[in-house]
Design a protein around this nucleic acid. Structure first.
Length: 337
DNA sequence: AATGCCTTCAACCGCGGGTGT
DNA sequence: CACACCCGCGGTTGAAGGCAT
């Protein structure tokens, strides 16, 4: 709510500023021109505004789309009488004015899903956004650049690096799942339900540890139920998207891979049977030889052994230590969102 | 109070792919 | 086939607000 108000406040301020702005833009290249200059061009081309949208412009755009629908953005901009490029109108509508745009901070579910999907698809923001109803690619991109990359910086590594992905996979995601379970438990305020959640969590872990083909084994058969029990919001998103596109065929792998690795991460932290777990994850999660070597090293550390790679050892150790202060202190931000 | 730095996010830009002529 | 136009995507920028000094 606060974020929404902040956003609105910013928008209004920006709009007020824009109203006083006489800057216009070349339509084709979007370049800035100062008002009064290049008169000849101005006569041939309509002056276009750029910068923050005013309330009047927003209303014009919203009303026009309500009457005529969206699409054909250049024509729309002209027909609506907006001195904006079609691109600008489209962006304003899709990222801000659209009624189903969800505003405010990302939930743990959404963060988890973003981390998962980014691990799979990289910076395919639009594709990722398709699986977060109400969220725009721009918002997710900003989230990644501001929040996630900030944590990567804290860890002194690149957000796209193997190390950071490992950190997300084995430490961050499990933590988000825990937050999610806590939230679900608090919302339900139902001890029996909570027990069920943890019991089903265990079942997935056991299924992963007991069979070499997790996806083909019990997981696939009960995936949907388990996801719902584990994380209602995330499961809802999975369910929502499963019938819409290619993710349908991947959804079992998504949930299974993610969850199996999440459980593996928890095992790591508790010194569990990593090797057995990892063996069952192969094929479900993008995994390279390097992945495996890293995981073996992580396993060694979890079991009290030493890392073969001193650099990695130091980093993982530093990461683990930072969990209790810097990293998870800032994580409180997530929790509050 | 003034200043500077940092964070956030709306908006812009360039590019590539799709489509119509 | 060539060209022009439109749309959507990912990267980047810059304004605004918050915070520290």
């Amino acid at each position: 709510m606060a974020a929404t108000q902040q956003s609105r406040s910013r928008s209004s301020a920006a709009a007020a500023k824009a109203a006083a702005c006489s800057e216009v833009v070349d339509e084709e290249h979007g370049r800035c021109r100062q008002g009064g200059g290049a008169q000849e061009e101005a006569e041939n081309k309509p002056e276009l505004r750029r910068g923050p949208w005013t309330v009047d412009e927003d209303l014009t755009l919203v009303n026009y789309i309500a009457d005529n629908g969206e699409g054909r953005w250049n024509n729309l901009a002209r027909a609506a009488g907006l001195k904006r490029t079609g691109k600008s109108c489209r962006l304003r509508w899709l990222n801000y004015l659209r009624p189903d745009v969800k505003r405010g901070n990302f939930s743990a579910d959404e963060q988890l899903l973003i981390l998962d999907l980014h691990t799979r698809w990289g910076n395919r923001w639009s594709k990722i956004a398709q699986h977060l109803p109400g969220r725009t690619d721009n918002e997710i991109k900003n989230y990644w650049r501001t929040r996630v990359q900030k944590h990567a910086k804290q860890l002194n590594c690149d957000a796209n690096s193997k190390r950071f992905k490992d950190a997300m996979r084995y430490l961050w995601m499990p933590h988000l799942v825990d937050i999610d379970i806590d939230i679900a438990a608090a919302a339900a305020d139902d001890h029996h339900h909570l027990s069920l959640l943890h019991h089903q969590q265990q079942q997935v872990a056991v299924a992963g540890a007991g069979n070499g083909d997790l996806a083909a084994a019990g997981y696939a058969a009960t995936n949907d139920v388990q996801l719902h029990a584990l994380s209602s919001g995330m499961a809802a998103m999975m369910t929502t998207t499963s019938s819409s596109d290619s993710l349908a065929s991947e959804s079992y792998e998504d949930g299974g891979g993610l969850f199996a690795n999440v459980r593996a991460g928890e095992m790591l932290m508790s010194g569990g049977d990593w090797a057995a777990q990892e063996a069952n994850n192969q094929g479900l999660w993008p995994s390279s030889d390097h992945d495996q070597s890293v995981q073996v090293q992580v396993q060694a550390a979890a079991g009290g052994g030493q890392f073969q790679d001193p650099e990695l050892s130091g980093w993982v150790q530093g990461f683990s230590e930072s969990i209790t202060d810097n990293f998870w202190a800032s994580e409180e931000i997530w929790k509050m969102q």
